[in-house]
Nucleic acid binder design. Structure first.
Length: 187
DNA sequence: ACGATGATGAAC
DNA sequence: TTCATCATCGTA
């Protein structure tokens, strides 16, 4: 069983979405010559950036050209360039007009938001587009069963770690301490 | 532990 | 005009 996550999944608090994205699969479909190549990566690390009040968020000082996609529909792709080196990949959450997003920081085979975008070929061309077949980037849920006895299955157990977000000390004592980073620990 | 990278936006 | 940033790599 599998299903592609729709806009309703992302039409919630970025903190909820960040936690629930753990264990889901980021799918990247790219054209390599004539063929379409599809890769799937299990999401294991995320961070939430929630609303205008969140001082760690790009939206904390209002709308700008760069952060405009954060104000779009849930499921919008927000890619920005930072430190003159790296693209960061975020998924917009909540209603249109409410700036919130989840930064995808790591998948099972690749840790670090900059490394991730490099590996998946995510850059500004995707900025502002919706997740889906058209953009060649989406998230899907796959039933994660393990056989425990003959023809008997159960869902794999996981542990979720919550920590403060990375690299945001500038955000002040309240927002820099929020436990908005989620890490999936496989058991 | 630190410098280079060099888009974007805020502070000055 | 200068400075810091939702990193990462190479060099020390």
């Amino acid at each position: 069983m599998r299903k592609i996550l729709k806009t309703e999944f992302f039409d919630r608090s970025s903190v909820t979405v960040a936690e629930e994205l753990l264990g889901k699969f980021l799918v990247r479909e790219r054209k390599i010559g004539e063929k379409k190549e599809r890769e799937m990566y299990k999401i294991v690390e995320t961070e939430a950036y929630e609303g205008l009040l969140d001082r760690a968020s790009h939206a904390s000082r209002g709308q700008t050209v760069r952060n405009a996609p954060m104000y779009g529909l849930p499921g919008t792709i927000y890619v920005y360039f930072t430190y003159g080196m790296h693209f960061m990949f975020n998924i917009v959450c909540g209603k249109k007009g409410h700036p919130a997003a989840v930064l995808i920081r790591g998948v099972e085979s690749c840790s670090g938001p900059g490394r991730l975008t490099k590996k998946l070929g995510i850059d500004k061309r995707l900025n502002g587009k919706m997740l889906g077949k058209t953009s060649g980037l989406w998230v899907q849920w796959v039933e994660d069963r393990i056989e425990v006895r003959d023809k008997s299955y159960e869902i794999r157990k996981v542990k979720i770690l919550r920590t403060p977000r990375i690299g945001i000390r500038y955000a002040g004592p309240i927002w820099s301490k929020k436990l908005y980073r989620f890490v999936l620990q496989s058991l």
